[in-house]
Amino acid sequence: MSREMSREAAAPADAVASPGGADQDEKVRKVELAISSLLRIGVLSSLLIVLAGTVVTFVHHPHYLSNRHDLGPLTKPGAEFPHTLGSLVQGLQHGQGRAIVMAGLLLLIATPVMRVAFSVLAFVYQHDRVFVVITSIVLTLLLVSFVLGRGGG
């Protein structure tokens, strides 16, 4: 009974008195805006890289504009394109259009991971220990998944 009451009493107090009050709200807002621009920059730059790679692909292969037999080898199973970091770097050195597209796609994949890493720092900045732990767990799980992917892939 008394536990129930104390919980009810504690809830509104928590909601109103987020430690630091208006100061804390401003910090939260700053972090929100930083995350928003991080996502925007990651997305827009990967979009531009993918677009550039697509243009380079068509410039290098002008017959792609008219030859209908070129499509199969590009999109059917067995199509050749970089799918390891090594072959990606090699393709980039040769200025290969599809390697540039792939680099853009990898940047896109990395964007949410960078966002989580940034969130860890943001919660440190807000002195929110519980959420530092929570976001660190998420980041660890993400990194583990990439390691597992390489092993299992």
Binding site: H83, L105, I109, P112, V113, L142, S145, L148, G149, G153
Partner: peptide
């Protein structure tokens, strides 16, 4: 993102 790396490697 947790699954994308696997698909890339495959």
């Amino acid at each position: 993102a947790a699954s994308a790396g696997v698909y890339f490697a495959r």
